[in-house]
Amino acid sequence: MYWSSWDAFWAMGGHAFFVWMSFGALFLALAVELVLLRVRRIRALGDIEEERELEAEN
């Protein structure tokens, strides 16, 4: 372990803003992508269900 305290860790030697803006953006971007992947799958499955129902009606 390199840090002497958690405060020192979060402060990142005075460059907290730049370091955490970088790491934060990455994790936010990944979270958004995972949500979008989920939404797309649910939508695709829903479309198939619709198609089936249409077929059943005819």
Binding site: M12, G13, G14, H15, F18, V19, S22, F23
Partner: peptide
């Protein structure tokens, strides 16, 4: 050279 900010 850079201190902690290099961790990016």
């Amino acid at each position: 050279q850079q201190g902690e900010v290099y961790r990016v």
